[in-house]
Simulated scan of single mutants.
Amino acid sequence: MKKILLTALFLGTFSLGYAQSAYYDDYRRSVTDVNWQTVVSDLLLSTTQANQINSLNNRYDNYDGWNRAYANNPDRWSTDRYAELERIMGRDKYVKFKTKYYKGKNPVAVYNSNKNNDKRYKHMDKKAKSYKSNNGKAHKNK
């Protein structure tokens, strides 16, 4: 009984840690995927704003610090981060930033959409569409 309990505890801890590390990976990509020097120059941000953005980008430079802040709610990082960016840049410049770097989408939605794009099952979508279209044609011919 103890072995089963320990195994369940271990698996639960491992899977939770893995899920949270995926969120941390998204967080790190939100920092590293954007050339922030270009953003500062394109949007004509002040030195103070540039320093605040650099400070924000360096806030959680490792998983442990990020995990202390977001262990209970790992989804919250994106809302916090982009609200802070909007505060630093101002509404108008933030909208320009979002339009250029995220094609007008909410950055929170961009990173959360990756959670539903499991590559292992992408090929199934094509097969399902093919099956639906073939069935539709077969019914039309009757």
Results as ranks from 00 to 15, higher is better:
Q20A: 15
N35T: 11
F10E: 06
L85M: 07
Y18T: 07
G104T: 10
Y24V: 05
N58Q: 01
V39K: 13
S15K: 15
K93Y: 00
Q20V: 10
D33P: 04
N114C: 14
A22G: 14
S46K: 07
K132A: 10
Y131T: 12
Y23D: 06
A138E: 00
F97V: 10
K137S: 01
A71Q: 06
N58D: 14
H123L: 15
R68M: 04
N112A: 08
N51F: 11
E86A: 06
L6K: 13
A19D: 10
G104L: 05
E86D: 10
V34S: 00
I88L: 03
I4S: 08
A19R: 15
Q52C: 02
Y102G: 05
F14V: 13
K100Y: 10
D33W: 14
A128I: 07
K100T: 12
K105H: 09
R68Q: 12
D42W: 03
T7L: 06
A19H: 09
D42M: 12
N135S: 04
D26P: 00
G12M: 13
N58F: 03
I4F: 10
K129D: 08
E84L: 15
R68D: 06
N106L: 10
T99Y: 07
V110Y: 02
K126T: 11
L11A: 05
Y101G: 11
T13D: 01
K142F: 00
Y60Q: 14
S46F: 02
R81M: 09
A69P: 00
A50E: 01
V39T: 05
D125S: 14
R28G: 00
A50I: 03
D61Y: 08
Y60C: 14
L11S: 03
W36M: 00
S113G: 11
K96P: 02
N117A: 08
V40M: 12
Y121I: 13
T7G: 02
W77I: 03
V40A: 05
Y70N: 01
Y60F: 14
H139G: 01
S55T: 13
T13Y: 11
S46I: 05
D125F: 12
